[in-house]
């Protein structure tokens, strides 16, 4: 089922996945399922921001700031799609409780 990601979802790296950084990107590998994803340098930055205390909106804004030459709407869309992939492959999870806290 396709996950619909909301701007106020908080994201956290899956701690059992293996993250391996290389010169021009990184690999994410899940030893249980064998899922493997290659990510480029922008992907690495996005993944590293998924530390549990940032929302989708925080992450997209932080990254978009560094890529001012790309239209904001487009880059935010791309980042969301990328995050959605990470969630579907279980490299990143949505944190329900922080989400609730933040709304107060």
């Amino acid at each position: 089922m396709k996950i619909i990601l909301k701007n106020n979802d908080y994201l956290m790296q899956d701690l059992e996945s293996i993250f391996r950084k290389e010169e021009d990107g990184a690999f994410l590998f899940d030893p249980k399922s064998g899922n493997l994803k290659y990510i480029n340098c922008m992907g690495v930055n996005i993944y590293q921001l998924c530390s549990g205390n940032r929302s989708v909106a925080d992450i997209t804004s932080l990254i978009a700031e560094n890529y001012r030459d790309i239209p904001e709407r487009q880059i935010k869309e791309d980042i969301k799609n990328f995050l959605q992939d990470l969630i579907e492959m279980k490299f990143v999870t949505i944190q329900p409780q922080i989400h609730t806290d933040k709304r107060r």
Partner: peptide, 11 residues
């Protein structure tokens, strides 16, 4: 084998 290729060429 893939393991010996660069990340760029793998992708």
């Amino acid at each position: 084998p893939t393991g010996l290729k660069s990340l760029k060429s793998i992708t």
